[in-house]
Nucleic acid binder design. Sequence first.
DNA 1: TACTTTAGAGTTATCGGTAACACAAATTGA
DNA 2: TCAATTTGTGTTACCGATAACTCTAAAGTA
Lengths: 340, 340
Amino acid sequence: MVTIYDIAKKANVSAMTVSRVINNTGRISEKTRAKVKRVMDELGYVPNQMARSLVLQQTHLLFLLITDITNPFYTTLARGAEDAAQKHGFRLLFGNSDEKLAKERDYIDTILKTRADGVLVAPAGDASLPHLEALRKHGVPFVLLDREVPGVDSDIVLGDSKEGAHRLVKHLADMGHRHIALINGSLTASTARYRLEGYREALKLYDLEYAEENVLETSFEPRNDLTEIEHWLDRLRPEVTAIIAGNNVLAVEVIRTLSARGRRVPDDMSIACFDEWAAYAEIDPFLTVISQQAYQFGYLGMQLLIDRIRDGEAAGPWKKIVLPSQLIVRRSVRRLGAEG
Amino acid sequence: MVTIYDIAKKANVSAMTVSRVINNTGRISEKTRAKVKRVMDELGYVPNQMARSLVLQQTHLLFLLITDITNPFYTTLARGAEDAAQKHGFRLLFGNSDEKLAKERDYIDTILKTRADGVLVAPAGDASLPHLEALRKHGVPFVLLDREVPGVDSDIVLGDSKEGAHRLVKHLADMGHRHIALINGSLTASTARYRLEGYREALKLYDLEYAEENVLETSFEPRNDLTEIEHWLDRLRPEVTAIIAGNNVLAVEVIRTLSARGRRVPDDMSIACFDEWAAYAEIDPFLTVISQQAYQFGYLGMQLLIDRIRDGEAAGPWKKIVLPSQLIVRRSVRRLGAEG
DNA sequence: TACTTTAGAGTTATCGGTAACACAAATTGA
DNA sequence: TCAATTTGTGTTACCGATAACTCTAAAGTA
């Protein structure tokens, strides 16, 4: 590997002079600069970031940690974060925790070891607390995305999950559904808690029945084994005509499970959920959803992060951005007559 | 930031002893080890990866560079790569080039500067050549995914694009379509070239007409502005009843464009394409596709990469894995009667 | 008992850069 | 003309870790 010393030797200057050329610092004669540059090109020199970061104490690297790289919500968010990072001249790397704390811990570990300048985190859940505390302790600025973590104060970008759940229940009620079930992610995720809360409040508000067996707490990430969902569907009160899914992945899995046993959506069961299935939804408008501004989650979150990196304390008190969502009515909810 | 020297001082040992505890090397008495460990925990010590990599000359970091993080084909591939990396105890970071050479260059730059141990690359196109040459020159092992780059010899995992295009044309012909258009990615991507080639060969084979205006070469990544596609649809020979899209993104965009002007799929136009829309396709089986084993692209590619990192030259001659694809017939292609 | 081996440490040099300071030659100013 | 600047470049120390070597005391051996 070519080092600054190889360049120095070949160009008949000191290493420091080469360093000055690379960084465009200090005074250098045009002649020397040209000579050094030529040698650098000849030898195909690439600065060693490790050595550089070691002495500079900063890497100029940012990380984005998401919980499900196959979920369009997060990949759209990632594009937003990427665009904002690029706008400010930062490099962004992605990690995928798969909703698993162990994987998240590994990434946090990598991030700490790599001494990243900052991190955008969609946390796996409340148990992410120690991971975030580690970041804080080591002075790595971070911004939370999509989920709160009790005990952590930080900049954060959220959607209004409670309001969203409210709107979904209202829509289903408006469509004539009186018995509405909920399949949710783990309650260790704040989004799941708020969605459950919104669901229960709205049921009460619209005078709809709440039944424990109509609510399933499982996990947001895709699973191979659908038996848990199957069993839940079996236990469901027979009057149930509509299901709210805590996210897009759950909605898809419920529909798969239903259709595997010959039950069709929306004819035999209505479904509505949180989050879009990105571009695909446009060509085949099937799922009725609460659409969140995924791109903005990433874009605004990245801006908060960069502000925090640039200004530190001076960026002021923690900022909390709550992004509004939107109900998009499509075909997966059936209108029920008086008989429903 | 806590360093090895802080630990050493507090534990009343030398830095080297601490290093030995961290890495479990050399001889250390249980008493000393325990003492050092306790101090490390107390101070919340995290090794500085920069300093470590600098002296060890290896980072234990792997990169995956994909061209479109919002495309389920690549995110599924990413999950495969991740699983394989984890199985072998490597850390994996992601980058997204967005099909843009400049972004790809930046990532390659980051990768070189970071002195990654290896890279999995889905190249933006033939012009990625210098990027790959840079990796080669600096001794960073890499494996190509999905696309060949003329002039580059390396391990590679590919789909059989020509065969796929062939099968799509055959299917459409079998369904009664005689005039089939093709919207394709940039021919600077080998997949686009092979798909075009397969398309033309198959047209000839099944005695179908080829017309230049029925073929559009554009780009694989999503666009905001659909006018190019619009204009192309306008220029299309009126006899055209079916369109093959070079990938899933193009298919979605064609359908959007058509539907914006009130033309429906498959009633007014049939569509078939390469690549799935992951989970969503299962709940709403709409697009007829050539399905590629995205997960395997990543999983097998990562295995090739790790073999190469571990064994270097000893891993033998370059390996080329060609993964078979599968035609999945759904609703986006209409069967034409004699009148079609 | 005296010599060798081994366990359990510490010392020093180094990885590839950069900051801070030093210094000679060229230029400026009174 | 000579001191004061300025310009261009080199020297040294250090960032935080590890490899290779050294050293001492205890244990083993003939």
